[in-house]
Design a protein around this nucleic acid. Structure first.
Lengths: 228, 228
DNA sequence: GGAGTGATTTAGGCGCACTAAAATTAGGAT
DNA sequence: ATCCTAATTTTAGTGCGCCTAAATCACTCC
């Protein structure tokens, strides 16, 4: 049985190495809120464990083994199902579900997890658009386009927002930048100035910082919108 | 903030001292599945803590302080609300909810607890009949009559069964001895022999061991049952 | 190819919750 | 009053996950 900490490390290694392929000690320390020294210790023990959970080379960070990846996805599945459940069934505001799920994910059994999934009708994404891994470890592709990458004039659908920062989530909800919403880049100011967005069915245009737009992932619509 | 272990100890002290007024080291060790030596250590630290959570005298066991009682009831409220929720909302079998709630009770916030209570319509008891403490710490009286105390011929309503033993719970469900069910003592064999019960709307009589009956609490009905 | 810089690892420690084994205590029996 | 026994406490030591401070490493820039 894995400890809560070990589960958190596996999840963090997974999330960090999604981009760069491997997770550095300092990136893990930053994400987990511990010192780099602590990360070194845990990576050594996850690597020494049988079955081995991470590949670890001194000064070169860590990658998940097959088994490690399986366990990480299990934790992420718990996390996202719990988030969806707390939001949909209990009406917990979407800026609070992450923190709550962060603790509950370690406390539920596989059996309970199955019942939650069933109760929700086997959802594919959590309230922030995060894809919920299937039990067999398969996971839908993550959308790669960021809102600040959209050319001016382009429309898109919001698909994924970061789930960790409650203040950002409250702001995004207020602006209407929630998964499923339609968005169009109307205009932008030069030199990293605000990006003017049309969001959902709202009438006007709304200036949003490029830093925020960078954190929001979208699926661009087809340019041609000939009604037919 | 209390640790998970400390919360478990407070709950155990509460439950054990309900009967005898105080909780002995060995009773706590037995209930918590640790050695008596561990209990001594934890009682010392709960007693040394400010605010103090238990009164502890060497060789004389422990009692809860006012603050300790408050915290214990908070944990029990979490536990029973989670049990009710898992059973009613997710359909988890009643023999499994205890083990699951045992872990989840430490992971939920006060805010989530409120939402669960609201979602369930502020229930008064858990699936085993255990009364759910109110937020202000008040708690309905526990029924004191045990099924094996009922005189032959007496009818009663099941009000409370122990929640910890899954095998016992499955048996009780099979027999129909669940909170709310009606039961009548039809006859009994001498020398601690089986007690013959009529349970609910079932036709026949069912022999049940006095040991099991001793663990089931009931509210006796009025003897006079004149239809009017 | 040597120096500097930032990332990483080592070394040493701390608090928590636990254990086994030894020592002690309370409280009834003699 | 003393002894006995069961319950309890003390002692010494473990594993985990974290810390700080000091040492070391990898890599870039001259």
């Amino acid at each position: 049985m894995l400890t809560t900490s070990a589960e958190d490390y596996l999840k963090a290694v997974y999330e960090i190495s999604e981009g760069s392929g491997r997770a550095s000690t300092s990136a893990l320390a930053e994400k987990l809120g511990v010192t780099p020294a602590s990360v070194t210790g845990m990576l050594r023990s996850l690597s020494a464990r049988r079955p081995q959970l991470v590949f670890y080379r001194k000064h070169h960070g860590a990658t998940l083994t097959e088994e490690g990846r399986r366990r990480a996805l299990e934790v992420i599945r718990h996390h996202r199902l719990v988030e969806a459940f707390l939001h949909q069934t209990l009406g917990l505001p979407w800026d609070q579900v992450h923190a709550e799920a962060e603790r509950i994910e370690h406390a539920i059994s596989e059996d309970l997890e199955d019942r939650i999934a069933e109760h929700l009708g086997f959802p594919l994404v959590d309230p922030h658009g995060g894809p919920i891994p299937a039990k067999d470890g398969s996971l839908p592709e993550r959308p790669a386009t960021r809102l600040d990458d959209l050319p001016t004039g382009q429309s898109a659908e919001i698909t994924l927002v970061p789930d960790e920062d409650p203040a950002l989530l409250r702001y995004l909800a207020e602006v209407g930048l929630v998964p499923g919403a339609a968005v169009t880049v109307l205009d932008r100011e030069p030199f990293a100035g605000p990006i003017y967005l049309k969001v959902g069915s709202a009438a006007g245009s709304r200036p949003v910082s490029p830093a925020v737009c960078h954190q929001v992932f979208v699926t661009p619509s087809q340019m041609q919108e000939n009604p037919e």
